[in-house]
Design a protein around this nucleic acid. Structure first.
Length: 549
RNA sequence: GGCCCAUUGGUGAAGCGGUCUAACACAUAGCCCUCUCAAGGCUACAUUCAUGGGUUCAAACCCCAUAUGGGUCACCA
């Protein structure tokens, strides 16, 4: 068989050879140990949480080694592509503070010297490499129709054989040049298949960075390299792109593990340096009694937009992802409260090889801790940004009172163990609304949940008349509450009350709760003294009077 | 069904042959502290590491089998 002739028959328009591209995309000039990684989604919708996790780890190891992280869009299947899919991915990344070193930055633009980074723009490159393989006698055109393939599958199923095109099922391997020429002349379409040199009975070893060495049967499938439209399948695009873009590490979901032997074989055939592989375990979700993959369709938390809507800080999400990625990260975080992930060194050995459940509760806890360590002004700016998008009424109010709001957010914050009230920006309104006359509603004041509050009018009136003094410091303020309690027959100390409950009609807690509910409509708030200090005299009196009047 | 991966509590996990009646964190419960919360402190929560067998003086850790869960077997990625 004259393979050169066959190659020209199949790819008459391809005039370059692979040397051209090898020179066009030379080895990267990077420091020793620098890792080149990538994220290569197909534009089928929003970026999935699991994908973000994989991308995040990939980026992390590139940062750790002063390497490169790039974004490549795998749009080789237009049936699945979604409108604005590319922009959606780019936007998701942008909104998640996820800058890339090179790759696709808009629907049409790239940065970096190894592009184009959109696979549909690389057809000629793939075809050049495929043509090369044909010339070497390692690939061939296959004219089988869907029906032919179906029949083969049926035969294989009934004989309990492995499904696929291999060995004697690879009928098109035996076509003569003449037959091929005739078919092409007749306008028959063909795919380009690998003439796999593998033997299923031979074992090969594939090394995964976290799973270790895995033994597989050698690949003997004549997998499709180029579909009939000349566009590559994932396998071939992976080979060509990751080789040409000089990727050193492939991080991808575990669902790719089983095609590892195909990829290894492809790299070996071309004699390209095999990148290192890391198959990242999937994130799961408990659904009733069963466990399944976190799903784009069923689980809102799989979409990045979910975190924006709730106002969960992007940093907190990354903190969570890192704790799931490296088991020693949490301990490290405790030692390094600054929490700068860049200072932490990722280690493949500390990565779990089994899939785990996505734990929103844990994420929220991490977020709570993260927010508690922020300065009040930071919190303010963040809520402001969030509210502008998701809660305009609240936005109007807090935008009107920046300093006041910041002061509210600073209550019990500047202390060694700050309050941890907020897990997300969306939580904040519920915790502080009563500080604004616009949101405080005295109709909501309800003493039924406060103990011994039947005489709330008496308590409040006495407090205004005799004990309330705006300039009091905290100690004085509290001493007066106790005096008020005593005067009305409530125990001034919890201890006293517990010792002789029958001696009193209630205790100090009841008194402050009456005041608390009156001023805030809530039974649980931060330090009442701090709240009153910010509310100021006039508003306090106005609220009290309205309630008693 | 073939091939492959995984299996420590409600969750994430540490552990890599003896110090394991199994670290740490989340969740849950109780107590303390306390003006209510949040937080914090203390305590409880796997006598046992999917099951069975083996190797060993000794196994969660090594080996084998079984079970369960997951992935994959497309002109999808």
């Amino acid at each position: 068989m004259d393979y050169q002739k066959l190659a020209d028959l199949m790819f008459p328009h391809i005039d370059k050879d692979i040397d051209y591209y090898e020179k066009l995309y030379p080895e990267r000039n990077l420091p020793e140990g620098a890792i080149v990684t990538r994220f290569s989604p197909s534009p089928t919708g929003f970026v999935h949480m699991g994908s973000l996790r994989t991308a995040f780890i990939a980026k992390k190891i590139s940062i750790d080694t002063n390497g490169v992280f790039y974004l490549r869009i795998e749009d080789t299947d237009d049936k699945r592509s979604v409108e604005n899919g590319i922009q959606g991915i780019i936007d998701d990344f942008k909104n998640f503070d996820f800058p890339i070193d090179e790759g696709r930055i808009s629907e049409t633009e790239d940065i970096g010297n190894y592009g184009p980074y959109l696979q549909s723009e690389r057809a000629a490159i793939y075809q050049t490499y495929a043509k090369h393989l044909v010339k070497e006698g390692l690939a061939y055109p296959c004219f089988m129709t869907e029906k032919d393939l179906e029949e083969i599958r049926h035969v294989q199923e009934s004989k309990k054989e492995r499904i696929g095109i291999y060995g004697r099922y690879a009928k098109s391997r035996n076509l003569s040049l003449k037959e091929i020429e005739q078919k092409i002349k007749n306008g028959e379409v063909f795919v380009t298949r690998l003439k796999s040199p593998g033997n299923f009975n031979k074992k090969i070893e594939c090394v995964d960075l976290v799973k270790g060495t895995i033994e597989f049967p050698e690949n003997d499938m004549d997998v499709i390299l180029l579909k009939s439209d000349g566009i590559p399948t994932y396998h071939f695009a992976h080979l060509v792109d990751d080789h040409l873009m000089r990727t050193t590490h492939i991080l991808r979901g575990e669902e790719w593990l089983s095609s590892f032997p195909i990829h290894k074989q492809l790299f070996e055939i071309f004699n390209f340096k095999l990148p290192k592989y890391c198959h990242v375990a999937l994130i799961n979700k408990k659904d009733g009694n069963s466990i399944r993959k976190l799903s784009k369709r069923k689980d809102p938390e799989s979409a990045l937009s979910y975190y924006h809507e709730k106002g969960i800080p992007v940093k907190a999400v990354y903190l969570y992802l890192m704790t799931t990625a490296n088991s020693n990260f949490e301990g490290w975080l405790e030692q390094n409260p600054s929490g700068n992930i860049d200072d932490f060194k990722f280690d493949f050995k500390k990565m779990s090889s089994s899939g785990s459940l996505f734990d929103l509760e844990k994420l929220l806890n991490i977020s709570k801790n993260y927010i508690s360590r922020l300065k009040a002004l930071d919190v303010y700016n963040n809520v402001l940004n969030w509210a502008q998008k998701y809660d305009n009424d609240f936005y109007q109010i807090i935008a009107k009172y920046p300093e006041y709001t910041t002061a509210i957010l600073n209550i019990e914050r500047e202390q060694p163990k700050p309050r941890k009230d907020f897990a997300c920006w969306a939580d904040i309104k519920e915790h502080i609304f009563y500080m604004y006359d616009e949101l405080y509603d005295y109709n909501k004041v309800d003493f039924t949940s406060v103990n011994n509050a039947d005489n709330y009018r008496e308590v409040i009136n006495l407090y205004i008349d005799k004990y309330f003094e705006e300039t009091d410091d905290k100690e004085t303020w509290f001493r007066k509450i106790k005096e008020l309690a005593t005067e009305l027959g409530y125990a001034p100390e919890m201890k006293l009350y517990k010792e002789n409950p029958e001696k009193y009609i209630g205790n100090v807690a009841d008194i402050s709760n009456i005041l608390r509910v009156a001023l805030t409509t809530k039974t649980t708030t931060p330090d009442l003294y701090e709240i009153m200090k910010l509310l100021r005299k006039d508003r306090i009196k106005a609220r009290f009077i309205k309630i008693c009047g």
